[in-house]
Computed example of a mutant assay.
Amino acid sequence: MLPRKTWSLRSAAAALTLSIAAVGFSSAVLADWEPSKPVEFIAPANPGGGWDTLVRTVSNSIRAEELAPVNFAAINIPGGGGSVAWAQIGRDEKNDHKLFATSPPIILVPLSGRSRFDHNDFTPIARLITDYSIVLVRADSPYQNINDLFDAMKKDPSMSIGGGSAAGSMDHIAIAGAAGAAGLDASSVNYIAFSGGGEVMTNLRGGHIAAGISGAGESSAQLEDGMLRALAVSSSERIPGPVADVPTFVEQGVDYTFDIWRGVMGPKDMSAEAVTYYQDLLARMQETDNWKQSRDRLGWYDAYQNSEEFGKFLDEQYTLFSTVLKDLGLLAN
């Protein structure tokens, strides 16, 4: 059984300076490059999850604000918690017209032995936002708070908790870490992996799983029709916006937080000109009204890092998650 602890991803990045001005390449020298054809912007999962939401929100903001001369075409490549898409992108080195959404699974899935591609096989472009995990149940569920759910899981370890990432990846780590902090054996959580947050919601609504865990931002719309209820969110304080009424784990006596960062990467060996163009484009996008409105609606927090900063952050995440997975007994040999 794991000792009580708080696994906050924010602490791993606390020392980094989130300065838009500190770019990895000289914008003045490389400013003439721009994409010459539509950019493939890949969500490595089915529609409806966090990667898909990020891809479509970014693409819509760029188009609405007329920030680029070409469209950013949203493409879904589901499977393997991201590994299917990464394998395809990994074969497409030096492609300056392909990007993909990324988050902790780019570290977690390889560490758990489920992908031979990791963050070092791609080009970091920019980190964009921070989101949080949220635990959901059906509106008619007997569990009124997170401790009700954990008490039931203690009595019946076979209770299924669904998530939109692979076993050993982000959603699994989020719920297992919370369970461990609540005094359960984190490795015994019966986690069911689905191909994205949309599939989690479908199975939860259908009563096929006892609870689901997903990103708070992508789940806010799922709460609007009253079919689902939220039990806890993994932020240190309540999140303003659509899920403002949802209590944190900490409020309910579970000493646990979990941040979900999301960003953009590209194929390996992209040109320096393309990297600079995209990181600067995304920095400008975050200052637009369209982005700010979408960000607030989804409950996201801006957390921009340029390519160089994001690359260092990913290396730190690798070190952090190696420890987390080892604690859970999920680190691949």
Results as ranks from 00 to 15, higher is better:
R4Y: 07
T6N: 15
A15Q: 12
S27I: 00
S27R: 11
A28N: 11
A31N: 13
D32K: 11
W33G: 05
W33H: 07
E40T: 12
W51E: 14
T53E: 14
L54D: 04
L54I: 15
R56F: 01
T57C: 05
S59Y: 08
P69N: 06
I75P: 10
G82F: 02
A85Y: 09
W86V: 04
A87H: 10
Q88K: 15
D92M: 12
D92I: 00
N95W: 07
L99I: 10
F100I: 05
F100E: 06
P104A: 06
P105H: 03
I107H: 08
L108I: 04
S112A: 15
R116H: 13
D121T: 06
A126L: 09
R127K: 15
D131R: 05
R138Y: 03
I146V: 12
L149H: 04
F150M: 13
M153P: 01
K155R: 15
M159E: 01
A174P: 02
G177S: 04
G177Q: 04
A178E: 04
D185W: 09
S188I: 00
V189Y: 03
F194M: 12
F194G: 03
G197E: 05
E199Y: 09
G215Y: 05
G215M: 04
E218R: 00
A221N: 08
D225E: 09
D225P: 08
L228Y: 06
A230H: 01
L231Y: 08
V233C: 09
S236I: 09
P240E: 10
G241H: 01
D245F: 13
D245A: 15
V246T: 12
P247R: 10
T248L: 05
V254M: 06
T257A: 12
T257M: 07
F258H: 12
G266P: 08
P267C: 03
A274V: 02
T276A: 14
Y277V: 06
Y277A: 10
L281I: 04
L282H: 11
Q286L: 15
E287M: 13
R295T: 07
W300A: 13
W300N: 11
A303T: 11
N306V: 11
E309R: 14
G311R: 11
E316Q: 15
Q317V: 00
L320Y: 13
K326H: 11
L330M: 13
A332T: 05
A332H: 14
